[in-house]
Design a protein around this nucleic acid. Sequence first.
DNA 1: CTCAGCTGTTTTTTT
DNA 2: AACAGCTGAG
Length: 748
Amino acid sequence: MSFLESLNEPQREAVINTDGPLMIIAGAGSGKTRVLTYRIAYLINQGVDPFNILALTFTNKAAREMRERIEYLVGGEARNLWMGTFHSIFARILRYEANKIGFDSNFTIYDTDDSKSLLRSIIKEKRLDDKIYKVNGVLARISSAKNNLISWQSYSANTELVLEDEASRRPKIADIYKTYVQRCFKANAMDFDDLLFNTNVLFRDHLDALNKYQHKFKYVMIDEFQDTNISQYAITRKLSNLHQNIAVVGDDAQSIYAFRGANIQNILNFESDYPDLRTIRLEQNYRSTQNIVNAANSVIKNNTKQLKKKVWTHNILGDKLELFKAVSDGEEGRLIASSIFQEKMNHGLPNSDFCVLYRTNSQSRAIEEALRSNNIKYKIIGGLSFYQRKEIKDLLAYLRFAVNPQDEEAFKRIINYPKRGIGNTSVEKIIVAAADHGLTLWEVVSQAQRFFGNGRLTTALEGFTVMIKSFMLAIKNKDAYKAASQVAKSSGIIKELYDDRTVEGRVRYENLQELLNSIKAFVDDPETEDKSLESFLQEVALYTTSDADTDPDAVTLMTIHMSKGLEFSHVYIVGIEEDLFPSQLMLSSREDLEEERRLFYVAITRAKKKLFLSYALQRYRFGQLKPCEPSRFLEEISHDYLNTVNTVTGSRPSSGFRLNKKTPVSGLKKKSNFAGKFNAKKHQVSENFTPNKPEELEQGHRVEHIKFGFGTITQIDNHGSDKRAKVNFDNFGEKTLILSFAKLMIHK
DNA sequence: CTCAGCTGTTTTTTT
DNA sequence: AACAGCTGAG
């Protein structure tokens, strides 16, 4: 096979040793993906049926890319591979086998929002204090239990866990866990963790099913093995038990998902689970310059828990790393923007060679602003995904509900959207009735008269029922696109958004159209076998990041977590400050600190040619400008590889501020609630101006504000129930005003 | 029932 | 700063 010739010795070993357990320790930049793809291609060339190969990755993107590369090597056969994320592959298996564990095959997958919303209801129903039982905390607790294969039964029987909960004054968590599981079951729904947990249940209780898949998957491969959790590991261990052909690829130094249950012990202990394990180390780095590789090594060597490995490179020495010190986050952005500009000019590089990495998504803002004012194109990877937008989730909820009318979370979302006179009180009634009679919400709603007699509520519910039934019919008889279009139209969502003439309304409307387009694309795609709406929903439930609009010539902005597996010629790591990176939330234990360091290691090793680091002396955090200390990690980089660049000081960032009762505005009455009562004369505003409702204001309007005088609206945004206008005042510069508090007069 | 206004919380990271 | 849930007036 000619493609093997391009590999070095250990790489080639990793490819052709197909039988028996194998662990490939792949250092950063050592060609890990290449080895994995070649290995699969090699297997296929050896006559192994792609149907018998299972390859698990962590992201949809990784799976897609790998599939493309394999297809390039072996052709269309690659399509039949079982390759995907843990979640998508096991969701697929669970669909087939759902009945065995008491679910319907059209079960819904709850995303994190759904899980939280359900927990919120449960906490409320149990009359627990939501200040103590914080949804995030409870969910984290349940999630970690599931990831460690602890059922609610064993949770409540586990003294250690129960004592922990009592210590944190949350003794009812076990109880909530139980109710949560039961409610999901009743809703015919699984959350992300359930997809793994229930697969374990399936294989534990149904040996016939296990047997079937054990025989099917003659070769099992796991990418990013250092990021697997106990639950994932247990599944793959079982699956590969018959043939023992399991190959895991990973790098303990890049394990950065402990917060999500990843267990670095999986990779550290793999040897003891498979006594006749063969281990291959890929240590030659093909990606980065010596300076970058050395700097990365000098950082990671401070960790105590790691496998023995020495990453080295034959590449050139390269430039030293550069460290920028900025006065503020705003200046940090400007420094980076001008550095990118310079590098581009000096070396004639495209935007796509550059990448800015940060610890938290919120840091992107300052960078964005600077890049925008320097006219540098950029794109943000991650953040709020397309599928998390409200308008998208609303339509999907309708579709979900019509497919699985037991879906409680979808029900709550759509029952009164668009408004049809079924408010919170009515919803409560429905929930109570369902609980009292042991019925699902849908069963209650579709027999409204029986439960609520004749009245306004029953009429409204009957209308709702008729509509949903027509959707069910449409879904059964039409393809996904036609069904979804009908739902969007008849449900009134389209009209609702279309009638919203604000800028955001337009965007939402377009997003909805885009969703419909993507359903159409799904239907039209010849590779889609099952064109039903069910099948589309299944795909979509596990989409997270929208890698739809990938501008090929833009600077990439993303969190370090998102960057794993990627590489860029020039990388900027920003915000390397104590409490931010390492994050203050991680500093409670030593292991957490080590994970932060691995994160830093991951960030450094993304760079091929040049690496820039930066920290700010003060930064807006938590709404306030706070002083910052440079991160302890910076000292771990030997000065042999690092240059400190002193920079000029810039101006402080400006911020908007909130006008409310606490910040009285001259000329206004104390009471802030004056919406609709505002009187221009009374407030001595010149007669040329008339007060306007916030929604009548538009970007570009010339306005007057009592305190700041004249200005021009540069931007209008919605923030929760607040509407805010950025106004450039002639005398005061740019201010952000909350329109419900600070009425602006529009010039007529 | 509905909405604007108000209050309190939050920031890690993602399938 | 940004967001989301809650409350009370209409």
